[in-house]
Design a protein around this nucleic acid. Structure first.
Length: 374
DNA sequence: CAAACCGGGATCTGCCATTTAA
DNA sequence: TTAAATGGCAGATCCCGGTTTG
């Protein structure tokens, strides 16, 4: 539909009427004919553009993301800016938020106030909300449905998640709360079904445990999670009970990586271990004991393993203390160098010393130097 | 007492496609 | 028809220290 026709439909104010006139006089010297109207795009709101530029908004970024917003006649950028600044946000934050999620300027003050209160039910301070929103404006502004947020809070609470859980959820995975409550319910049911299908007897508890262990789970598609679970089960030949325990425990957060990534990491680790003389069952047991290892990309993991082997630690010993994989190659290299210098014997003393914070490591090292036989 | 266990903090958003609403 | 709302995707660990155990 041509813009002026549309305008006629909704012309109810003087401003719009004036805009229409300006538009027509710019593009149409005579009464326009149908066929040449189709090519005229809705113009952007020049006044709005100026306003945004003055606020420091990256207009071209905004245009690229949500072009429609820049064509709107009525927006609330000033209200939004005033509101956010009253909550402690800087002008820079406001500009950045609008640049990244322009639709934010279409929200009314009442709406913003209401939403803020909902978030404040969960996050304790305005600063926390500001920093979350600055990190992910989309999570805060994408939905205009405040009722839905309330329903989500009620729903998540009904699962037995307490205020600390909700806090972690909103601070770390804010998108959970802009999901429609139906989607969240669907995803929780999906988790409960997984439990039931695998012979678990308390699906509600399972879902709750799962969510508190993996706060990102509700922003993952069930398709992805299902594919990962199926893949783990098939490739490691896991029994239902082992898989269930894994998912309810330390394996909860490996299911949300992308399918390809999981597959790559697992096959590459398997290959590497097999090439070092491990059996398939060793690979399986290792992954069960420390599923987080699959979070590490194939290349990084391989480098890390080589670094440990080169440091003179037998593979069997490495596998017994998988937590060392938690640390970066740099961290491990530095520790290995120090230990090498004092002639530390891993065969005899194990690798536990690598799995500590810098502070504890230094303390331990100091004691070793003082009394080397300890 | 030291080692082992365990969980939390940081950060995990920003883009695209499809569906729905106006 | 346009814009809004919503769902889904790829991306790719490391470190610390409180508490429990031995």
């Amino acid at each position: 539909m041509a813009p002026w026709v549309k305008a006629l439909h909704c012309t109810s104010t003087l401003q719009q009427a004036l805009k229409l006139l300006a538009f027509q006089s710019r593009f149409c010297s005579i009464t326009p004919k149908k066929h040449d109207l189709k090519i005229s795009p809705n113009p952007e709101n020049e006044f709005l553009l100026e306003n945004l530029k003055l606020m420091g908004v990256d207009v071209s970024m905004a245009r690229q993301r949500q072009p429609g917003v820049l064509r709107k006649n009525f927006t609330n950028e000033q209200g939004l800016a005033g509101f956010l600044q009253s909550k402690g946000a800087s002008g820079k934050t406001v500009a950045s938020v609008i640049s990244r999620y322009p639709r934010a300027i279409t929200r009314s003050l009442e709406h913003l106030e209401q939403r803020w209160q909902l978030w404040r039910n969960i996050l304790q301070t305005d600063e926390e909300i500001v920093s979350t929103l600055d990190r992910s404006p989309e999570s805060f502004f994408r939905s205009s449905d405040n009722d839905n947020i309330e329903k989500n809070i009620a729903f998540l609470s009904s699962l037995g998640l307490n205020s600390q859980h909700l806090h972690r959820l909103l601070a770390s995975a804010p998108r959970t709360f802009s999901n429609s409550v139906e989607l969240n319910k669907h995803r929780v049911e999906f988790l409960e079904n997984i439990c039931t299908e695998m012979g678990g007897n308390d699906p509600e508890q399972f879902a709750k445990d799962f969510i508190s262990r993996n706060i990102y789970i509700l922003i993952r598609s069930t398709k992805r999670v299902k594919a990962n679970i199926d893949y783990l089960k098939a490739s490691l030949k896991l029994s239902d009970s082992v898989l269930l325990a894994l998912l309810q425990g330390p394996g909860a957060d490996i299911v949300d990586v992308s399918n390809e990534y999981l597959k790559n990491n697992l096959t590459s680790l398997q290959q590497k271990m097999l090439s070092h003389g491990c059996r398939r069952v060793d690979v399986k047991n290792f992954i069960i004991s420390y599923p987080a290892v699959l979070h590490t990309g194939a290349a990084t993991l391989s480098t890390k393993l080589d670094c440990l082997l080169k440091g003179g630690i037998p593979l069997q010993q490495i596998l017994k203390k998988p937590k060392v994989f938690d640390y970066s190659v740099q961290n491990l290299t530095a520790k290995l160098q120090e230990l090498h210098r004092i002639g530390y014997d891993f065969q005899e003393k194990g690798t536990g010393i690598l799995d500590t914070s810098q502070k504890r490591f230094k303390a331990k090292l100091g004691k070793l130097v003082m009394s080397p036989n300890k």
